[in-house]
Design a protein around this nucleic acid. Structure first.
Lengths: 248, 248
DNA sequence: TGAATAGTGTCTTTCAGACAATATGCC
DNA sequence: GGCATATTGTCTGAAAGACACTATTCA
């Protein structure tokens, strides 16, 4: 058999591994043995992030069973048969936080054969950015199982979740520089100082106030609104809103 | 049951869907019904790219069966039980091209429930960059089933593969700007004109020769080697090699 | 009037991009 | 000498980064 003879596409091979239907039985290729390919378990994990008190924070779940019992982990769950990967992530997020109107992006798929000591599990990881005004929904919860942790200073996590969180932070930092992703972490109206705090929390370093303002204002994606924010015994700050239709 | 009560991690849920082992049976959670979660098929597709004759080209496979019979598609296949996603992609690549020493990167995971009309197939897509000096291996093959096409001008593809290829081109263009990914498409020794051709092929637009040279030479990642490349009746070009240990 | 944060401008350096003439080897 | 590609530098505008003082509100 030449190497050419078993050329195929993944989709073609996939169908071969299915139980035959009358329609497909006659054209199943013999070069694939369905039994040879066990289907792995597939899950969707969601790294849920927010910025609170000038810190990037991540929501973690405490594991109650072997393996890694008692350790903290990134929440996740199965993909339902008829939902897309993103729908699945959105559902998982809703189950954890009761919110659904959030920024959500696929991060990476982790599939090391021994990443889970029990069985082969491939996980498609998403990350979600919760706005400051979406946080009260779960505040005061009996936070025994789920808890916010500083994303740059958290307990060692179960499975390969340390690696996953590290990768999430990297992606977020890099996207911050060339997208408007930072606005996803703020309420619709915000001050420039609040925006700067979000950037500093994600980048994990201080930024120069003048340079920061110069830069974001020069992009033209911010619109000042009439109201101001009064907070404490000092000058109130101007409020801005994100203007998504500012094609630069 | 409170929302908190069914908090879990994907890994935890995954194990619940397995057939019980004596060890795990006693701690299986009842909140998950293994039968509820059919395991999807998972494949790995590999977008195999190269630059030939100043053009970015992609290797495609002609489908021989329903659905999309006769259409061209991105090669792919199943994940073997004990190989990682990347190993699987590397194996697929070797089956198609007989080469294994290539740049390979995970692109994205596509999992729309109806992307394959037959059954639920989730595909983890990688892309591979073949160097010019790795191409002869399959040249002259009886190219009935596999064939190189211009990546910016190709036939309409099966499944969601047009979308996958489009996304690959985007990723490649963007990575070209902030990584050394371009060098992966050239033989160990190359001229600056050849390097520029790779960049132009990927970006699909001409670049200014002086600015291009100024820029790549200023990074310090190129080392000139003594030999020159003679090609035709004109001045021979200096040869360079990529110096990966040039920390900038 | 003191406390606390809001708000503002200049200078320097670096980088990107537009732009065209000379150099060299081979036939 | 003619051909074909290799090789080279200047100018300009934009953007990034270093750096410190004044403005405003409220208690």
């Amino acid at each position: 058999m030449s190497a050419r003879a078993d050329k195929t596409t993944a989709a073609e091979a996939a169908a071969d591994a299915q139980i035959d239907t009358p329609r497909e039985a006659h054209q199943r290729k013999d070069s694939y043995d369905p039994g040879k390919f066990e289907r792995p378990s597939v899950t969707v994990d969601v790294v849920i992030l927010t910025v609170r008190e000038r810190r990037l924070e991540v929501m973690l779940i405490r594991r109650r069973h072997w393996p890694f019992e008692g350790m903290w982990a990134i929440p996740g769950g199965f993909i339902a048969p008829n939902e897309s990967l993103e729908d699945s992530a959105r559902r998982e997020l809703r189950e954890e936080t009761s919110v659904s109107d959030v920024y959500l992006e696929q991060l990476y798929t982790f599939g090391d054969p021994v990443r889970d000591p029990r069985t082969r599990v491939i996980t498609v990881v998403y990350y979600a950015l919760l706005r400051a005004d979406q946080l009260h929904l779960r505040a005061g919860d009996d936070a025994a199982d789920a808890q916010w942790f500083p994303a740059y200073e958290h307990p060692s996590l179960a499975f390969d979740h340390d690696q996953i969180l590290d990768y999430t932070r990297q992606r977020l930092r890099s996207k911050l520089e060339y997208t408007t992703i930072g606005f996803q972490l703020l309420a619709p109206a915000f001050t420039l100082s609040e925006l700067q705090e979000v950037y500093e929390a994600i980048l994990n370093r201080p930024l120069d106030k003048r340079n920061f303002r110069k830069k974001v204002l020069s992009t033209g994606i911010l619109e000042q609104i009439p109201e101001t924010r009064k907070a404490g015994q000092h000058r109130p700050a101007a409020l801005y809103r994100f203007n998504p239709r500012a094609d630069k």
